[in-house]
Amino acid sequence: MADDVYKIQEKKITPDALYNAVLADSDGAVTTFAGVVRDNTKGRGTSYLVYDAYRDMAKKKMREIGDEIKEKWEVDCVGILHRVGRLEIGEISVLIAISSPHRKASLEACHYAIDRLKQTVPIWKKEVWTDGGEAWIEGDPSALASR
């Protein structure tokens, strides 16, 4: 069994960054999710994004998500990377990789992981638009009720 990985980093995230870290010989599946910077928000052109994080707490909350997953599904290993700083269009903002002996567990757990991350992990996105405007984006406050 490999070690879980929970990291916040400035460094660019590559799509395969977690694959080997979560994989063990007893696994039959690895599900990977990458969140990517899109070039528009509802049609308004995006120039780039800036992510900010409460790093220590973000890592703690990501670990809690991993612990929740291990209670709900038979998975082997959980890895979550989130980037901070300035991100260009097409770059990966978040990468999740989950390994499991059988595919269903890691597929479901990966979906759960990204949904929970968007509810509980203290990370924020600033959109800088091509028209010169910029704003911190706020998630759904009601989501925090399920922290």
Binding site: Y54, P122, I137, L144
Partner: peptide
């Protein structure tokens, strides 16, 4: 103590 606006990671 930290004041945490509605999160928007991901």
């Amino acid at each position: 103590v930290a004041f945490i606006p509605p999160v928007s990671g991901g």
